[in-house]
Structures are given as C-alpha cells and as structure tokens.
Amino acid sequence: MRELEAHHLAEEIEDGVQLTLLGRLLYERYQSFASVADEVRRHAHLLSELPADAPITPDLLNKSDIVLPERHAPNRPVQRVTELVEGAEQVVALAPVALPAYVELFYEQIVDENLTAEFVFEPPVIEYLGTDYGEMLEEAAATGRFTATITDAELPFGLVVSEGERTGVAVIVYAEGGELRGIISNETPEALDWGREVYGYYRSDATRPDESN
C-alpha cells in the first residue's frame, strides 16, 4: 500500500482503499492490454502463419470465432465462409488463392442468387481462373454483378466482407504453399469496419484485367 501511495496510485479513505484517478486510468489501460494479449494468444496458431506486416488489429480478433480444419471435418472453414456468403447481398473479397469450393460457391451465388461481388486477385489466381474456369468467369461477368481486379501486391490472407442479411468478415489463412489453415470470423461492427478498410487499401491500387496490360 505504501508503494501505491508513493506513486499516487491509491489512497486510504474512511471505508478502506481506493484508486486515485492516475491509478484508475493505469488499471483500465492494463486491463485493455491484458484483453488484447489474451486475444492474440488465442489466435496464435493462425497468426503465426501470416507475415509480420499483415494488417491484423484487435478489431478483427476481439470476439471472433476461430474455425480450423479437423481430420474428420477438413471443410469446416469452407462451410463457415459458405454460410457468410449465402446470407449476403454484397461481398468484397481478397483472393490470393483459388479453392475450387469457393469458385463454385461464388459462381452459384452470383449467377443464381443475385449476389454482387467484387474481388481483388493476385495475377496467378486470375490466370488460373481464366484457364480452368473460363466459362464460369464469363457467365458471372455477364450478369454485371461480378467485378474482378488485379493487384501486384502480395495478399497476406484471403478476406471476405459480406453485407446483407448476413453481415460479417472472414479472414482466410493459408500456409505458404496455399494449404488452408483456418479462418477468423467476426460479425462485430468494429471487425466489419476493419474489413472494409483493409479491402479498400488493396483495392485502391488494383486494376481491371483489361487495364493491366
């Protein structure tokens, strides 16, 4: 107690001891830091797969769900993204990898369910889609509800930001070789704002395929 008093962190009152204003502010800051540290530790398995400069913040991590593939259910992360997309009216996304399950999901939602979707792709991904899914890509583009752009940046993770009946964010984490490691899913307003900002950052320098030559 003497040490707390010496640093003006606490004071004795008639009923016992209370924090000073300085003490209360420092305690609240400590609680905030401890909460962030707990969230970072909870996500350590997936965060360790991302580059050091990946734009992850506590706004994404706080109150999020972590979905990992399991031996008996390797598609659990894909199912969570499917739920997010199927309940959406509009989606924006970053795509460093093209998983067949996601290609088919977005094709069906754009063509059959009137989903509006805008993507930022890395060049190898759009080349792969054009080669292996060319007809589906053209059919989706013909609806006027699908926009593809290309970035020269290396996308640190996949990202889906959905709005509509189902609103939320999913960060899709891949290993260096493209293997799906899991997703971080969050539907809080803070996470949604984070997702919009991150997507906007990469979209700002992206170009349409017919403009990139």
Score class of each variant (00 low, 15 high):
13 I>Y: 12
174 Y>N: 06
148 A>C: 08
131 T>G: 05
201 Y>T: 11
54 A>M: 04
141 A>D: 00
84 L>S: 09
119 F>Y: 15
191 A>E: 08
180 L>M: 08
42 R>T: 10
37 A>P: 02
70 E>N: 04
147 T>N: 05
63 K>I: 04
73 A>G: 03
98 A>Y: 01
108 E>G: 02
108 E>A: 10
109 Q>R: 05
109 Q>E: 15
163 E>I: 04
15 D>R: 15
153 A>G: 05
44 A>F: 15
74 P>S: 04
81 V>R: 10
179 E>K: 11
91 V>D: 15
178 G>A: 03
21 L>H: 15
9 L>M: 06
79 Q>C: 02
110 I>N: 06
190 E>R: 14
40 V>Q: 07
148 A>Q: 12
5 E>A: 02
212 S>W: 00
76 R>K: 06
50 L>A: 07
105 L>E: 02
156 P>G: 07
4 L>N: 02
77 P>H: 07
13 I>N: 14
122 E>P: 01
122 E>R: 07
153 A>K: 12
182 G>T: 08
213 N>S: 04
133 Y>V: 04
8 H>A: 11
102 Y>R: 03
202 Y>F: 15
11 E>D: 07
182 G>D: 07
53 D>M: 01
186 N>K: 12
158 G>L: 01
31 Q>D: 12
137 L>S: 05
141 A>H: 00
22 L>N: 12
149 T>Q: 09
107 Y>A: 11
199 Y>E: 07
53 D>Q: 10
137 L>P: 00
139 E>G: 06
38 D>F: 15
159 L>S: 01
201 Y>H: 09
187 E>M: 05
72 H>K: 13
87 G>I: 10
119 F>E: 00
71 R>H: 13
164 G>P: 03
23 G>W: 02
170 A>W: 10
130 G>F: 02
202 Y>T: 02
122 E>H: 03
204 S>Q: 06
148 A>V: 07
80 R>Q: 08
118 E>R: 00
181 R>N: 04
36 V>N: 11
185 S>D: 15
9 L>Y: 11
196 R>C: 02
3 E>S: 14
140 A>W: 01
121 F>E: 00
120 V>H: 00
77 P>G: 04
145 R>N: 13
161 V>W: 06
180 L>P: 11
177 G>Y: 08
163 E>A: 11
194 W>E: 09
145 R>C: 03
123 P>E: 02
21 L>P: 06
147 T>K: 09
58 P>A: 02
84 L>F: 04
149 T>G: 00
32 S>H: 14
135 E>F: 07
3 E>V: 14
132 D>L: 13
70 E>Q: 12
213 N>A: 14
142 A>W: 10
33 F>V: 08
202 Y>K: 07
